[in-house]
Nucleic acid binder design. Structure first.
Lengths: 227, 227
DNA sequence: AAATGATTCAATCAAATGATGGACAAACTA
DNA sequence: TAGTTTGTCCATCATTTGATTGAATCATTT
């Protein structure tokens, strides 16, 4: 029995799918509260009641958008992992930055949506949260920052987050940053990639503070530190 | 003739100031569209009409919040610059990370608000935008990434942005990231600082790709590149 | 063709929301 | 004290917004 989401993906031009796309675009641009169901319906060219017929209430539609995006991210990460399997860390980072930048710069709404889901207090869909967490854990292991999925130190997770955020930010913030840099879209992509590599690669390759500096137990001793 | 904002700051406990604080908190948590004037009024314990009496419409209040925050950031940056004047870059970065993390982790709403102002499509208040731009330019010069305020290469701005975003993200995302890292607030601050230093300091100090790699003209040749 | 189920829209509702006007009181001024 | 300004709230309005209902249309099956 396919889920509603899978069914929608099977027929890429169905009304239901078009609603999902329009919703992703608009939610990505304006956030959950900044979008009305009427805006989405108008974007698709349908009536509000048709939207509710397919996706239930606004909250449910939003969650579906996030789940859909999470799946897409997952596929992208798998694709990257396939590309860089067995390569040294510097190469892994280089390729990952290239691919993720290309993807997110072409889908700025997705990047924005990821940001919103990270930072908005409206965080719903603990299911999606769990997915993101799993992605980050996988990346930590893949980068050699942890020996095991079940033993990722907070510092390792934090370092992955730093990489993750850096990439997403430049994609999501293009509308704000690019006018500031006074360059066109193509140059922006180039500058972003160069900057990310400049920032990220030295830290992880010049391993002064590399993988084995802190214990790989998942709970560090700092838990109850109150001076 | 003091502006309305300055006048409000002179009397820290006035109703007008309390409205501004509550507004910053709520806008930081839920974004512009996620907050109603009634929510703010209720938080302060006043009537909506009193709010409108002091700050005009919602949009104007929001802009005032952003302007106020921008001023605060400015003071913080000046404070940092005073602290690190003449020090080598590694120390400058270390201190800047420490101070900004302490400040933003104690004011997560401010960090969130900064994020919203960067990434939300609702970007109003070009005045505030200009302030942020000036801050970034100043930092670029202060970090030795440009010789002159008027000749900051896009790459230099981009590197500053990378630093800027990295710091803000960890502060704004605490509610999302900290449960993921499974540590308490204190440990979070420590881990974030360590991670930021781990990521940022090597890139800028091991100057393989340092300041003078690209020309310091503000307009690179890549402007009209269409292969 | 008739029956059935799926899809769409016009009309509408109730609640929420931004904003205003006017009454009223406190503080200040002449 | 009388008058003026400032600040606060109650009541209210016009829109917007999320959501539903019921009728009509389309597609599929029998």
């Amino acid at each position: 029995m396919p889920t509603a989401l899978e069914k929608a993906r099977q027929t890429p031009d169905s009304v239901k799918t078009r609603i999902l796309s329009a919703a992703r675009k608009l939610f990505g641009e304006y956030g959950f509260h900044g979008v009305t169901t009427r805006m989405i319906a108008k974007e698709v060219g349908i009536d509000i009641s048709t939207l509710h017929y397919h996706w239930g209430d606004k909250q449910n539609l939003y969650e579906s958008v996030l789940t859909d995006l999470s799946d897409e991210i997952h596929h992208k990460l798998v694709e990257i992992e396939t590309l860089v399997q067995g390569k040294p860390l510097a190469v892994r980072l280089d390729v990952a930055i290239e691919v993720m930048c290309d993807y997110l710069l072409e889908n700025p709404d997705s990047a924005n949506l990821l940001l919103f889901s990270h930072f908005s207090k409206n965080r719903i869909t603990s299911e999606v949260e769990a997915h993101i967490t799993r992605h980050l854990t996988n990346i930590a292991v893949a980068m050699g920052l942890a020996v095991d999925k079940d033993h990722v130190a907070p510092q390792a997770h934090a370092r992955v987050l730093a990489v993750w955020n850096a990439v997403i930010n430049f994609a999501a913030g293009e509308n704000f940053f690019r006018p500031l840099l006074k360059i066109d879209t193509q140059s922006y992509a180039a500058v972003v990639k160069e900057t990310l590599k400049f920032i990220l690669i030295p830290a992880f390759t010049l391993a002064k503070g590399g993988t084995e500096e802190w214990p790989s137990t998942s709970m560090p001793s700092a838990k109850n530190s109150a001076p």
